[in-house]
Structure formats: C-alpha cells, structure tokens
C-alpha cells in the first residue's frame, strides 16, 4: 500500500458521495454543480492514472463547459424536479443492477489493474507508439502523435461531431424566427452586465483575460511537448470569452466576437482539417498521410500536418463552444 492508494480511496469516496448526492437531490441547480464536481474529481483520478491530456480535457469540458451549459439551461427553465414515482424507479434500479452485475462479471476476467503483462501493454501497438513514434513523427507527447496522426481520422470525426452539435444547436436555438413588432424587449438569460459597483470583479477579470487567452495559445501550440492540443485550447479560449460575456454582458462579448464570425469559424476548422486530408491526396499520398507534405523530410511533414490539423480543431472547438454559449444565453429573445 503506497500513498497513491490512499489518495485513490479519498477521491473515489468523493466521487461516490457526489454521484449519490446528485442522484438524490431534487434541486437541479445543486445537481448540475455536483456533476461539475464529479467531472473535476474524475479528472484528478485521470491524473493519477497518467492520463494528463484526458484529465485536462475532462476538467475543461466536463467540469467547465458542460456546467456552463447546464446553468444556461436552468436559467431558461426551472430548477426543481418532481419526486420520482416507484413505477419508474424500480425498473430503473433493476436495469442498473443488471448492467452493473454484467460488468462485475466481466471484470473478473479482466487483467489486473496496472500490471505490465496485460494484453494492452503486450500488443505491438505499445512499442510502435511509445518507441517508434519518436523517429516516425518526432513529437514527445505520444498522445498527440496518436491523436493527430496514427488515429488522425478518428480526430477528424471528433471535430465533425463538435461541428454537428454546433449547427444542430444553431438550428434549434438560433434566431431564425422573423421578428414581430409586438415582441417584448429582449430579455437575456444569463449575462446581464454586472452592476458598476462590482468594480473588483470587472478589474480582476479584465486583468485575467489576456493571460487566459495567452494560456490557450500556449496549450494550442505546445501540445506536441506537453499535455494539450486543439481541443483543450479551444475550450480554454472559449471560456475566457465566456468570462468576458458574464462580467461585461453578452452584447459586449458579441461586439468582440460576432456570432456571424463564429458561424464562419466553425466550418472553417473542419475545412482546414479535411483540407489537409485532401491536400495529402493531391500530393500523391493516402488521406491524412502527412509524410507527403514535405517531400524531403517526412518527420517535418508530420509536424506540419499535426500543426495544421490541431489548428483546425482549435478553431472549430473555440467557435463551437462560444456559439453554444451565445445560443443558450441569447434565448431570452422573443419569449
């Protein structure tokens, strides 16, 4: 038993308590906050299990962005739920217990946790990714190599998923309705400009903003060497602007980054990513084969390809996250 086990136990206890708490509370506001806490705690577990990139993303996306969206929805709807009747809870409990039971059954034949001789560690993939990627791609962060190159096609798909969500939300919540004269004055859900006497908040957030955006850029371009990449950077960039919108009001944020610009940026990122794929095709390689980007130095081609696709990811994610926030925040109009 080393110290890590105790940290594990503490974290798992917090997780279980949070999960039970959010299942039991009927205050949806509390449940949303607990769900953010749940994500943040699970990010700590991911750090302990060496998945720093995942932890980073889970903290930014799960604890940050998702919670913002939940709160935005709660501001537009109501925050208390009904009591769950037994006719719903009993079958649900049976299904949950059965599913859990099957998984426990499955786990009895799973390889021991963290052992060195598991099929996952023994597979030739391990050696290829951990040893050969340095010569093939030359990026120290192997997660970035695998994400953007070996399995770059999955990541293209993932960027498309973000793009899909953004245009779906735009379709559902965007301002498509023709304005009528009888419409009440726009009432915005979340970000009213905070009152003038909150000067500390305004000054502090104004001071922080450049650093948040700078950090996002660092995460974007340093993803080759440390944890980070387009996804994390995109979410951080967007959250910086969301902070701005919360403190200075939605109109100020819209003046800084207009919804029309976002509507161009979301598809632009996907186009950059897919465009790299088509460029490699035209250069005579396979789809997303970055080696052909530099005829003389394949590793440099890989660097270039990864840089470009991460840029595409960063642009789409930043714009999509901000667009989601705008869509929810602006949905007071016309109600």
């Amino acid at each position: 038993m080393n110290g890590f086990v105790w940290i594990d136990i503490v974290l798992f206890t917090i997780l279980a308590a949070t999960a039970v708490g959010l299942a039991r509370t009927r205050q949806l506001f509390a449940a949303a906050m607990l769900s953010g806490l749940f994500s943040l705690t699970s990010a700590c577990i991911f750090v302990l299990q060496d998945a720093v990139d995942v932890a980073f993303t889970e903290a930014a996306v799960g604890a940050g962005m998702t919670t913002v969206l939940f709160l935005g929805t709660l501001a537009l709807t109501r925050s208390r739920e009904k009591v769950t009747p037994p006719r719903r809870s009993i079958p649900a409990a049976l299904i949950a217990i059965f599913t859990g039971g099957v998984l426990i059954y499955a786990s009895t034949d799973m390889p021991p946790f963290a052992a060195a001789d598991t099929p996952v560690q023994q597979h030739p993939l391990t050696q290829r990714f951990l040893d050969d990627s340095m010569t093939e791609i030359g990026v120290p962060n192997v997660v970035t190599s695998v994400l953007a190159s070996y399995r770059g096609y999955d990541t293209l798909g993932e960027t498309v998923v973000v793009f899909t969500a953004a245009i779906a939300v735009l379709m559902l919540l965007g301002r498509g309705r023709p304005a009528t004269s009888a419409e009440p004055k726009p009432r915005e859900a979340l970000p009213q400009p905070i009152q003038h006497d909150q000067r500390v908040l305004r000054v502090v957030s104004k001071l922080m903003l450049p650093f948040i955006l700078l950090f996002a850029l660092y995460v974007q371009f340093h993803g080759d060497y440390g944890p980070g990449g387009g996804f994390q950077a995109g979410v951080i960039f967007a959250s910086g602007l969301i902070l701005y919108a919360l403190v200075f009001g939605l109109d100020a944020a819209r003046a800084a980054v207009s919804p029309a610009a976002l509507r161009r940026m979301v598809p632009l990122g996907v186009l950059i990513y897919a465009g790299v794929g088509f460029a490699t095709l035209l250069l005579g390689g396979a789809f997303l084969d970055y080696n052909v980007l530099d005829a003389h130095d394949p590793a440099h081609g890989q660097h270039l390809g990864i840089l470009l696709v991460e840029l595409g990811v960063g642009i789409t994610v930043t714009a999509a996250m901000l667009m989601l926030f705008y869509s929810f925040a602006a949905r007071g109009v016309g109600r």
Binding site: L156, V160, F163, T164, I167, R263, R264, V266, P267, L268, V270, L271, A274, G277, F278, L281, A286, F287
Partner: peptide
C-alpha cells in the same frame, strides 16, 4: 484506390461548405 475514403470524405467536406455558403 482512394475511393473507399473519398465516398465518406466528400459528404464530410460538403457539410462545412453548406454552412459557409449560407444559401
């Protein structure tokens, strides 16, 4: 030889173009 990917990648490319052109 490239058809397997093209038949998925072309509709994929089409989606952002639809959004960019806005018509």
């Amino acid at each position: 030889a490239h058809l397997p990917i093209l038949q998925v990648a072309l509709p994929l490319l089409a989606a952002p173009l639809c959004v960019l052109l806005r018509s």
